[in-house]
Amino acid sequence: MSGRRTAYEIYWEILVFCRKPQSFTGIINRCDLNSKTGQEYLGFLMEKEYLMETIEGDKKRYSSTGKAGEYITLFNSLYQKLFDTAPTFKL
């Protein structure tokens, strides 16, 4: 996903994608981030224990923790609620 997004939207994207263990390159490609900002976002999520790092062979993988579920659910409900309230756009 590319384009102008808020930090919260990027956190959500990373956490949902990391439901299955993912590599750093996979995450930055999927979320359209550069390495520097990718490191910052992953660093923050790991510090808050929403993401954990595992070693598979000689590769590092990142996966969401159980704590991420609450944030993902809240985010989904807030964004979908945008369409429950008026006004809506129609022809």
């Binding site: 949902v16 979908q80 945008l82």
Partner: peptide, 11 residues
């Protein structure tokens, strides 16, 4: 669905 809503907002 949320991903598409985020994409629309971003667009």
């Amino acid at each position: 669905l949320t991903r598409l809503i985020v994409r629309m907002l971003s667009h």
